[in-house]
Computed example of a mutant assay.
Amino acid sequence: MTNDWSEYQAWVALGNTPAPAHTLAELIDAALKALADRRWRAETGGVSVNGSPVATDDRSQAKLVGACLAATLDASYSIQWKIADRGFVTLDRDQIIAIAQAVRTHVQGCFDREAALAEEIQAAPDEQALATIDIEGGWPSWA
């Protein structure tokens, strides 16, 4: 059995130094990166509009913007829209706008949550305070 402390002292005597611990700034940066990833997962996790699941990934958001713009410009506009795994449905102008608004509300809610948590993270005075910030809870859900 070896003596770890003696080995450590011998290692230091050879001119070695332990790697510095992460600074608070590095820990905050890592927490902000994790937070951005968590927001993205919430944002793209989908919503439910009138009981139908609606995708909220970037591509779906862009298509909804186009459909909403067309519906805004043409009161008689309707489209065939694929609702997640349930196939195609015909949506009229009002339904398109309602879905787009629900998705926009969901996405903005995710960014609002990220902003609030980012403020908490950046204000953390030490590692202990930073560790108490829960980035998993409080996200908009599509229930």
Rank of each mutant, 00 (worst) to 15 (best):
I83F: 11
K82D: 03
T44Y: 07
L64T: 00
Q80L: 10
I83S: 13
T44Q: 09
L73A: 11
N50C: 05
I79S: 01
L69W: 14
A36I: 10
L35H: 08
A84Q: 08
R59I: 06
V49Q: 04
R38W: 06
A36D: 15
S78R: 15
A36Y: 09
V47T: 07
W40M: 14
A42I: 07
D37I: 11
V49I: 03
V49R: 01
K63T: 04
D37V: 10
A84M: 09
A36R: 14
R38T: 12
I83H: 13
I79M: 14
T44S: 14
G45E: 02
K63R: 15
G45Q: 03
A75F: 11
S76L: 10
T56W: 01
L69T: 13
I79E: 02
C68A: 15
L73K: 05
T72G: 06
T72Y: 04
K82R: 12
Q61E: 14
A67T: 07
N50I: 01
C68N: 10
A55I: 03
A84T: 09
W81Q: 00
R39L: 13
L73E: 08
G46F: 04
A62T: 15
A36V: 13
A84G: 05
R39Y: 09
V47F: 02
V47M: 13
D57W: 01
R39V: 11
T56I: 01
S60F: 03
V47C: 08
L73R: 08
T56F: 00
I79V: 13
D37K: 15
K63Q: 07
T56P: 00
A84D: 11
Q61M: 12
K63H: 10
Q61C: 12
S48K: 02
L64P: 03
Q80P: 11
G66Y: 15
G46R: 01
P53Y: 04
K82A: 04
P53L: 02
D58E: 09
V49W: 00
V54R: 02
S52A: 06
A75D: 11
G51Y: 08
K82Q: 09
A67I: 12
Q80F: 08
G51W: 04
A84P: 02
D57V: 05
W81G: 00
Q61D: 13
A62K: 12
G51C: 05
V65Y: 14
A70P: 01
S48G: 01
N50T: 00
A70V: 10
A42V: 09
D37R: 13
T44D: 09
L69K: 14
K82W: 01
D57P: 00
G51Q: 11
G46T: 01
K63C: 04
K33W: 04
V49C: 07
W81S: 00
Q61I: 07
T72R: 06
G45R: 04
G45N: 06
R39S: 13
A84H: 11
W81C: 05
A55T: 01
N50R: 05
A55N: 02
G66L: 15
A42W: 03
W81K: 06
S76F: 10
D58R: 05
A34Y: 07
R41G: 11
G51H: 06
